[in-house]
Amino acid sequence: MMKTVIRISLLLPLSLSALAAQAGPAETLERASTIYEQALAQEHGWSVTEPLIEEARAAMAAGDEDRAQALADRALLTAEQSLKQAQDEKDAWQARVVGR
């Protein structure tokens, strides 16, 4: 039950993420974090996302906007793809079952 509710609520943010491209690193990072949390809740988080978020924050703190944006974009990509993987795999795994 819980799982289903979570799954449905997850479908929304993906479609919005295209907008993030125009935003600054802070906004991109916020999106990345939100989506990453959603992937985590489905036990589908990627271990690369959080370090990228942290690196981007450090670059922001150091005043390196370009580097911060590049890292934030990568963090967002990995977060989005991890959530997409979670969604796709809901059905896709069945095709791999041996003997099926």
Binding site: W46, S47, T78, Q85, W93, Q94, R96, V97
Partner: peptide, 10 residues
């Protein structure tokens, strides 16, 4: 049977 992780393995 579910793929996980950035490297996409089950």
């Amino acid at each position: 049977y579910t793929r996980r992780g950035q490297l996409n393995f089950a």
